[in-house]
Amino acid sequence: MPFGLLLLLVEAQWSPLLRADDAARDNLHAFALTRGGFVAVMEALSNIGRWWAYLICFTVVIGWLLWRRLVRLALFVVVTVGGSGLLNELVKLAVHRARPVLIDPIANETGTSFPSGHAQGAMVGYAVLLLVFLPVLHGAARPIAFTVAVLMVLAIGFSRVALGVHYVSDVLAGYVLGAAWVALMVASFNTWRREGGRGPADLAAGLEPEIGPGLDPREI
């Protein structure tokens, strides 16, 4: 519902939303033009959120899960992360919103704008990492992991607006769609667990909390 509302407001060119998008675009662009260090940091964050970075990361994660014979979790990662990318491309194709246009751009991207693939990918990617590895995180490690994940999701989304390649509404739509997709995949995973004779997972303890006692965090 939140994603549908955002889409309707974008398609209807709702004035308050357009003004907010334009103000963020113009103010951040003006700030970035004279600050090379800021631009470098934003580009680094943006690169962390690119598809090839996730490919490297999740190839390692999937390989580790298969090595530990955690096939169900490996399939969850493949479908959730891979399906998110496909979903984003389909929605972008349907909406076909042009990217921000700036007279003196500091970054250039091809393709359409809504929703932000970086924002959606960050939401899905960091959520999946938390859901998979929470069983082996204990004590202070859990809040630290949550904090790092939240900060990275926000920072990657912000970098896309700061570089002038997305509107704020694109980023918000990416967050919302990514969260909805993860929720759908978790519900499907819990159905799979019930069919296997287990109850639904307590997400605060990860998707497969039973694996925690048998795993050594140093093996990650």
Results as ranks from 00 to 15, higher is better:
residue 39 V to R: 15
residue 214 G to I: 09
residue 199 G to R: 03
residue 11 E to M: 14
residue 106 I to C: 10
residue 67 W to D: 09
residue 199 G to Q: 06
residue 4 G to P: 08
residue 220 I to T: 03
residue 116 S to F: 13
residue 181 W to Q: 02
residue 128 V to L: 03
residue 67 W to Y: 15
residue 154 L to M: 15
residue 20 A to M: 13
residue 26 D to T: 11
residue 120 Q to F: 07
residue 43 E to K: 15
residue 45 L to W: 10
residue 21 D to K: 00
residue 31 F to M: 15
residue 74 A to R: 07
residue 97 R to D: 01
residue 138 H to P: 00
residue 214 G to D: 11
residue 217 P to D: 10
residue 7 L to H: 08
residue 98 A to P: 05
residue 59 T to Y: 05
residue 143 P to H: 02
residue 103 I to N: 15
residue 93 L to N: 11
residue 137 L to D: 02
residue 102 L to S: 11
residue 97 R to S: 00
residue 106 I to G: 08
residue 6 L to E: 05
residue 167 Y to Q: 09
residue 126 Y to G: 08
residue 141 A to I: 00
residue 140 A to G: 01
residue 216 D to R: 11
residue 206 G to P: 05
residue 55 L to T: 13
residue 89 E to D: 15
residue 139 G to R: 06
residue 206 G to L: 04
residue 12 A to M: 13
residue 129 L to V: 06
residue 184 L to A: 11
residue 183 A to N: 01
residue 97 R to P: 00
residue 216 D to G: 00
residue 44 A to C: 09
residue 220 I to A: 07
residue 27 N to C: 10
residue 6 L to D: 00
residue 8 L to N: 12
residue 149 A to Y: 10
residue 12 A to G: 10
residue 172 L to I: 13
residue 218 R to Y: 04
residue 204 A to I: 07
residue 206 G to K: 02
residue 141 A to D: 01
residue 205 A to F: 14
residue 26 D to W: 06
residue 1 M to C: 07
residue 195 E to N: 09
residue 195 E to D: 04
residue 90 L to V: 12
residue 217 P to E: 05
residue 163 L to T: 04
residue 77 V to F: 01
residue 110 T to L: 13
residue 62 I to D: 01
residue 163 L to Y: 09
residue 128 V to E: 05
residue 127 A to T: 12
residue 180 A to W: 07
residue 206 G to C: 02
residue 214 G to H: 14
residue 38 F to R: 12
residue 114 F to K: 10
residue 159 S to H: 10
residue 153 V to G: 02
residue 193 R to K: 14
residue 15 S to R: 15
residue 5 L to A: 14
residue 151 L to Q: 13
residue 189 F to T: 02
residue 169 S to C: 00
residue 204 A to E: 11
residue 12 A to N: 12
residue 50 R to K: 15
residue 215 L to V: 11
residue 170 D to L: 08
residue 52 W to Y: 12
residue 165 V to R: 04
residue 116 S to Q: 11
residue 62 I to G: 03
residue 85 G to A: 04
residue 95 V to L: 03
residue 91 V to H: 07
residue 80 T to C: 07
residue 148 V to K: 08
residue 69 R to T: 09
residue 41 V to L: 12
residue 171 V to G: 00
residue 93 L to P: 00
residue 74 A to D: 01
residue 7 L to I: 07
residue 165 V to G: 03
residue 26 D to Q: 14
residue 42 M to T: 02
residue 65 L to W: 04
residue 77 V to L: 07
residue 121 G to E: 06
residue 209 P to C: 08
residue 58 F to S: 01
residue 4 G to N: 14
residue 181 W to E: 02
residue 219 E to D: 15
